[in-house]
Design a binder for these strands. Structure first.
Lengths: 240, 240
DNA sequence: TTGCAAAACGAACGTTCGTGCTATCTTAAA
DNA sequence: TTTAAGATAGCACGAACGTTCGTTTTGCAA
């Protein structure tokens, strides 16, 4: 039953199965993989050690030993979610050129990250922030810190876009970042609560409108044309 | 200990203390008053019968008898929150004239409702929606229904404003309602997580910009002037 | 082959959860 | 003054929670 979690493969697995310790690390990672998905759907508090253990067909105590406390498990889960977020959203967006293309990509990939159900409960951090915003503690602090990172990333791309003359000088980075983030989270909210996929095209349209409004002549050429792309049903039907 | 909750006042109390039943109803209401505030801060699931009972200095079983199940308690709490929301937000906004004034008032009063901490955990429904969006059941359905009512109220005001020529004909009510709601919830999010009061002026500015963008010449006269009103510190310092 | 530390287990701890059952108190009506 | 219904309390339940403990299994190193 132990090896239900971590199969002792012969060789050629990503990280060579070197020592006893490595085995433990792989189990830990396997636990967190499930924990992250479970927590995004049922909340970090609803993420129960017993539930998690039975989901992985291992004992509560064996699982518990990896973390030492529920709070540590929650923190590790948050950290694992951050890794996934960076891999799925931040890194791909940074493949785009500095400034406006990157800013737009950040927003576009974020919407895809929710739409594609990278986490089955939508944006992990939107859920965690709502759950912990009223409970002081290390989990809350970490979640708040990560969302600050995200806002800083948006602000950074906006500032760059201004510096290279793609956005007007009167575009306030903090204000614009607030609005873009709010529209993204609004799409997440509508999709989670109503399964409303149209929310993504609404958010997309609103964001593009926002960006165009502050774009210089050279900047606006870097944005997708209206009615194109991953838009709603209507825009696809009207295209061509 | 009974009368810790409902004091047996002589007379002149709002509803005359008529019968045994009326007394129970008043206790029920007193329970819900506390329940709503507790739930907005700690969540509808974190709202515990034992905790609620000790908060009211009454027994678990005595309190429990009023509802029969936790789910019924949650539903009653949601309903009580809706009553408060209607009293604090919808009703005041409907005092404003039909169309654009009412639409703006809806947004403005909503921001005040969060800023003024009508519920100590911020917008009750934003919290409840985030908590229950992944758990099917009657609570989720009711919360989703109430938020649909709110969006419909926004859409209704937008449609009215269009009909009386205050908003452009090309302003899509569903799209605009989505954006206004997203910006409001964004302010709630920033305030809950960071205590950031500036978020209110950011949301206010963004909403006004949205409304002005779609306003006709006659409509724009009905909106507050830029940089005036309950804005942030900066706008107050710059005024006059 | 044996030794030994890491990993996982199983059982139990004390607490809290939601939920019943029954007795007692309060009070309008008879 | 008696009666009966409604409101509340007291107590107990089974389950699940996070956590601790001692033991067993596992697999590299000597």
């Amino acid at each position: 039953m132990v090896n239900t979690v971590v199969k002792q493969t012969g060789a050629g697995q990503e990280k060579a199965a070197k020592g006893r310790r490595a085995r433990g690390d792989r189990t830990r990672q396997a636990i967190l993989e499930v924990a992250v998905d479970l927590a995004s759907a049922e909340g970090l508090e609803g993420l129960t050690i017993g539930r998690l253990a039975s989901e992985l067909s291992m004992s509560k105590s064996g699982l518990f030993a990896h973390f030492g406390s529920k709070e540590e498990l929650q923190l590790a889960t948050v950290e694992a979610a951050r890794d996934i977020f960076i891999r799925e959203v931040v890194r791909p967006a940074f493949a785009a050129g500095r400034g406006l293309p990157r800013l737009w990509k950040l927003c576009d990939v974020w919407l895809a990250y929710v739409k594609g159900e990278v986490f089955s409960g939508g944006c992990f951090f939107a859920a965690a922030a709502a759950e912990f915003d009223g409970r002081p503690g290390s989990v809350r602090d970490r979640v708040a810190g990560i969302m600050k990172e995200w806002l800083a990333t948006l602000r950074g791309a906006i500032t760059e876009a201004r510096e290279v003359g793609q956005l007007d000088a009167d575009a306030d980075p903090a204000q614009l970042a607030f609005e873009l983030n709010a529209l993204e989270m609004g799409a997440n909210w509508a999709f989670q609560l109503y399964g409303d996929r149209q929310a993504f095209s609404r958010a997309r349209d609103a964001i593009l409108e926002r960006l165009r409004r502050h774009s210089t002549a050279s900047g606006s050429l870097l944005l997708p044309q209206a009615g194109k792309g991953r838009g709603g049903r209507a825009s696809r039907a009207a295209a061509r």
